[in-house]
Design a protein around this nucleic acid. Structure first.
Length: 476
RNA sequence: GCUCCCAUCGUCUAGUGGCCCAGGACGCUGGCCUCUCACGCCGGAAACAGGGGUUCGAUCCCCCUUGGGAGCGCCA
């Protein structure tokens, strides 16, 4: 049974780099019909916050990355760590170290000046008794001195580390709490994790962890280190670019499905395919198809994918997302067309749900002014008479539906020998206030007859005022 | 500084010695469709980091250089 895990530390936002790690882990578990475990690594009590934990849970939930077990919290597992620490001490795989901070700093500095790696030199390793005076002590792991540790990474391939490069790392702090390298190993062992899938910033830690597994007599899991994600400039993720919470994408109107699809293609591919349903992702995902190099995020491509998903999205579901956006933007959508009808006509002309909300204000709210550029171009005296006449036709219409509206406009165009485009644009500006909207017939239907007629009056008035202004200024 | 990892169009990638004077996607761009916007459709420009090998033949294998990244904490 394959068991994978996602083990974030709640010290900051769950950003898309973390999400992709979670996604790969989750996909692999699902692909193998195994289990996916969520574990919160909160051993650093200073920096861990409840708020960050909640954000992680919310993010995972939004994306549908469901865990079969957990969330487990490291802060609840002290007994497990203590057991393992005792085991290591008893089996002579760990020892007390009494070195002071100053001593360690001096040691590192000296090593650097000699052009060596700043390692701990193991001076407390064979100490029989504590020194005369000391302030505190930590526990260090006895790392093997010679030989090499080989990692057969499922993505990076075989990676060899000389054990002489590894030093005796601290596994218990002076306050008695375990450090990361000890707790991951104990947790992964206890939780019977078979495949550790994580960012390749952990690759260098891996030999240390492997050695602890061995010292504990526990089976070493398989490792798969996935490359990091870079921001759009190819730099490390920062708050400004990509490192903000994934939930921000939700706020911006990105669909969970689209984000997942986007993320799965970062570092993984299946031939030329770009769009994957969740089922396809699960059945096609293989660790052996994951790339070794870092990938930069590309907001344009995410937008494009989002649009692809949007245009085929279920109207009912989309309507509820749209409602959230309206609320977020403080747009009152109670007086106007049904949200599902709106979704139907708007979903293929916008890139995000947020954009859809922003582009749909005029269905619910009256606008104060016509967009200047649009009005200047389309609401001109030459069109005054035509608008007046066509308004008359609209007034007479019994059924206010796209079909009948369309027919009225067509008849009008034929009668007066005007091209559709000549009248549709002025109409559009008149009833929406701007020059972009769905096709004019459906737009007018959804706005509603009364509003359309009112807005036409307003437009006619606008043109008249304008033509008077023009003549008084001697301009035509 | 030391150790480890990486390197195909601007970006995401296909490619596992001949199918490649390198394919797809985003973006950019020319056009078609069209009541606007968008969708859709048809075209275009755009890459194997450099140098050595190995081989009849290298994007693909090996080495070096260069360039990126990660780690070297009582952070995770």
């Amino acid at each position: 049974m394959v068991r994978t895990r996602f083990a974030p530390s709640p010290t900051g936002d769950l950003h898309i780099g973390g999400v992709r790690t979670a996604l790969f882990s989750w996909l692999y578990a699902r692909h193998c019909q195994g289990q996916f475990i969520l574990r919160i690594e909160d051993t650093d009590r200073e920096r861990s916050t409840d708020e960050a934990i909640q954000l992680i849970l919310d993010g995972m939930d939004w994306l549908g990355l469901d865990a079969d077990e957990g969330p487990f919290y490291q802060s609840d597992r002290n007994d497990n760590y203590n057991n393992s620490i005792n085991k290591l001490m008893d089996s002579n795989h760990a020892y007390y170290c009494y070195c002071s901070k100053q001593e360690l700093d001096a040691m590192r500095e000296e090593a650097m000046s000699r052009g060596e790696k700043p390692k701990y030199d193991g001076r407390c390793r064979n100490r029989k008794a504590p020194p005369e005076s000391y302030e505190t002590h930590v526990i260090r792991f006895k790392s093997p001195v010679d030989g090499e540790t080989i990692i057969k990474d499922l993505i990076q391939g075989e990676v060899r580390f000389q054990n002489s490069e590894l030093d005796d790392l601290v596994i218990v702090r002076s306050d008695g709490t375990p450090t990361y390298n000890l707790s991951v190993v104990v947790d992964d062992a206890d939780m019977k994790i078979t495949h550790v899938i994580r960012g390749d910033d952990h690759l260098n830690n891996t030999p240390r962890q492997v050695n602890i597994f061995k010292a504990l007599g526990m089976p070493v899991p398989e490792y798969a280190h996935i490359p990091l994600i870079l921001d759009e400039n190819g730099k490390k993720l920062s708050k400004r670019h990509g490192a903000a919470s994934v939930l921000r994408y939700k706020e911006e109107g990105i669909l969970a499905e689209a984000l997942l699809n986007y993320l799965v293609r970062l570092g993984w591919s299946h031939g030329d395919q770009e769009v994957f349903s969740q089922e396809e992702m699960i059945s096609l995902f293989e660790l052996s198809d994951v790339n070794k190099s870092a990938a930069a995020i590309n907001p344009d491509k995410l937008s494009w994918l989002n649009q692809q998903y949007l245009k085929d999205y279920d109207n009912e579901t989309l309507a509820s997302l749209l409602k959230e956006q309206f609320e977020r933007l403080s747009i009152d959508c109670s007086d106007g067309p049904s949200l599902t009808d709106l979704c139907m006509v708007q979903k293929e002309r916008v890139k995000t749900v947020q954009e859809m909300a922003l582009q749909s204000r005029y269905f619910y709210e009256n606008f104060e002014e016509f967009a200047p550029d649009a009005a200047k171009k389309h609401l001109r005296p030459v069109i005054l008479e035509a608008l007046q006449n066509i308004k008359g036709l609209f007034v007479e219409l019994d059924s206010w539906e796209a079909d009948s509206i369309q027919q009225a406009i067509k008849e009008f165009c034929e009668k007066y020998q005007i091209k559709m485009g000549k009248v549709a644009q002025p109409l559009r500006v008149a009833v929406t206030g701007n020059s972009v909207s769905p096709s004019i017939d459906i737009t007018m239907e959804l706005i509603g007859k009364e509003r359309v007629l009112n807005r036409l009056d307003k437009a006619l008035e606008f043109i008249q005022t304008r033509s008077q202004l023009d003549t008084s200024e001697g301009v035509t």
